[in-house]
């Protein structure tokens, strides 16, 4: 049996915030008509939480659902539960027009943690997003551009951020986060 590893196998760096590649994370892309009750029910069961509104993420422990676009959700689960949950969706939505795919190994996920103002600053250095506490609060979910690659960001709680990117650019994103959070490079903009 092969040994599954995440893109950077848990690499971490510490500057003025901690950057940590989170290892194996189960992710399911679910596309379809988000207003259809059948699809919403299947997403709820698989994601263990309610379907979030536009631009938000709903989290419940190790599970969650993120709103990716008007016809796409990203379901977060522990890595070893993905196959069972994917099967659950597929059987519930049999005969309904939808797409459900295990994308766990196609993505990488990072945690950025530390002082809230500095976590926000690290992301603000890399993304064209207003990261002020007034504009971007925990619970919001934002797909954007991180330097030269697409990324999705959210804040599970104060002083914590999550970044999802494609696996192929995981090293690039890790280096970006590491570089942006080098000790001594604090701007203090959100203090």
């Amino acid at each position: 049996m092969s040994n599954t590893v995440s893109a950077l196998n848990g690499a971490s760096a510490s500057g003025y915030v901690q950057v940590h590649e989170m290892g194996l994370q189960g992710m399911i892309t679910l596309r379809g008509d988000l207003s259809a009750k059948k699809l919403v029910d299947a997403a709820k069961t698989a994601g263990g939480t309610n379907v979030p509104g536009r631009g938000h993420i709903a989290l419940s422990g190790a599970h969650g659902i993120a709103w990716m676009s008007p016809d796409e959700l990203l379901i977060l689960t522990p890595y070893d539960e993905v196959d069972a949950r994917l099967e659950g969706i597929t059987s519930k939505l049999a005969g309904t027009h939808h797409l459900a795919v295990n994308v766990s190994d196609a993505r990488a996920m990072f945690a950025v943690s530390g002082d809230d103002a500095l976590v926000r600053e690290t992301l603000a250095k890399l993304c064209p997003v207003d990261m002020s506490a007034a504009a971007f609060a925990p619970g919001q979910f934002r797909r954007t551009r991180m330097a030269q690659v697409p990324a999705a960001i959210w804040l599970p709680e104060t002083g914590e951020a999550r970044v999802i990117c494609f696996r192929s650019v995981a090293q690039y994103v890790f280096d970006l986060l590491k570089g942006a959070s080098l000790a001594g490079s604090e701007v203090g903009y959100f203090r």
Binding site: R54, G55, S69, P70, P128, V129, R142, R143, T144, R145
Partner: peptide, 9 residues
């Protein structure tokens, strides 16, 4: 999606 962003996004 209701997001306001600058043109590089």
């Amino acid at each position: 999606c209701g997001v306001t962003a600058e043109e590089t996004e």
